[in-house]
Design a protein around this nucleic acid. Sequence first.
DNA 1: GTCAATTCACATGAAAGAGACCACGGTCTAGTG
DNA 2: CTAGACCGTGGTCTCTTTCATGTGAATTGACGA
Length: 421
Amino acid sequence: MYNLLFLWKNKTKKGVMMKENKVSKLFERFLAQDTIFKDKRALQVQYTPENIPHRDEQIEQIAKIMAPCLRMEKPSNLFLYGKTGTGKTLAVTHTTNNIAKIAKKREIPLAVLYLNCKLKKIADTEYRIIAQITRELGREIPPTGLPTDEVYRVFFNLLEERKQLLILVLDEIDQLVKKIGDEILYNLTRINTELKNSQVSIIGISNDLSFTNNLDPRVKSSLSEEEIVFPPYNALQLQDILKERIGLAFIEGVLEEGVVEKCAAYAAREHGDARRALELMRVAGEIAQREEEKKIRIFHIDKAEEKIEKEKMLDIILYQPKQFQAALYSIITLHQNKRSDKLISTGEIYELYKNICGKINLRMLTQRRVSDIIQELDMLGIINAQVISKGRYGRTREISLSLQDNLIPKVIEILKKDLDI
DNA sequence: GTCAATTCACATGAAAGAGACCACGGTCTAGTG
DNA sequence: CTAGACCGTGGTCTCTTTCATGTGAATTGACGA
């Protein structure tokens, strides 16, 4: 896409005829080129494969726990732990899909709802979650305007009149609780005692293993009646997964020797994240294709790794609010000015930030807020901030930039453009 | 030299406000028969 | 008489501000050896 745009910009200057010829040639060449992909979807995140290697045990456990719902008995609430890309979501959707299929065949009134709590604007507050669930059950709820208990009531009545079993899958539930507390979980677990005709069973999925520790004990005990831990994949298991998907995604024989191994090794280094392995493979394939190579070579994996890192970072920065960008800009400026490895303090950043706000006509925030913004930038992995005490000379965050050096000019460019400097 | 008190420069928490968005019900207005 | 415009009230949500409290070690200064 980027290349195309670039081409277009150049050609418009020289004349329309030229442009048409060049571009259409490019497209024709694109079509004539042998593609190395058979079905790219197999490498995408949403893809649900038939076969899930190395997760039989977990799937079986989930299935056993869920099975009672086919007899209209409420299954235990279930809790799944595991790092990102360990197949939690996949295992759950796989089993719930099967259950739903059987339930449909036998005409058992069972509904499975999957909700990712991290999705902004959809399921990241109590109101939105209940509203979303109710919507999925087929009753329209306005996005705002109603009191939360009103939505609860609608949800409650709907369930009661439907007389059905509801399995509620809450993905990334730790994020939710971190943000709005565990009240909603308490309400959801308690709702069973009030429902006469229906039952709700909750499957919580969390990336954070220590997550239940900060839960209200009542919620904790009722929510995690059953727990399953998903261990990270090791490199060999990742290879199996990759091979399986590669067979679907690529035409046979386009992979150079050792590519799979390298890809798996890279992903295994990052706590065995299968999602990452697949992404790496896909991007490597795209790069190879763009370079009009007939094979994916090992160095394509390296390139893909670099590209993913870079684009992720730039994307994050690009979509930050102006205030964040202003704060980041002052951090980068300070970083550049210092040159030596001196660390930057909150006070310095705030001073420069005020300055910049004045220049570009941006509303100035209080130090309290900027302090939070710095912390959030840290969470995003753009900077590295550590609280330290310098004794008599107070207490601050010591901040350093954790962007790769070759990214910095690009970031500055983006920030300047966005902030109009 | 030792030890507790002090002090700095913020960090961190809690609560509340501003402003955007929205639903709902009541009132007003203009068009219709 | 009725449909639609318009308004006020009350709700959520996000981003901020305000006020209050917390923190950890360098420094200070009193004290005793």
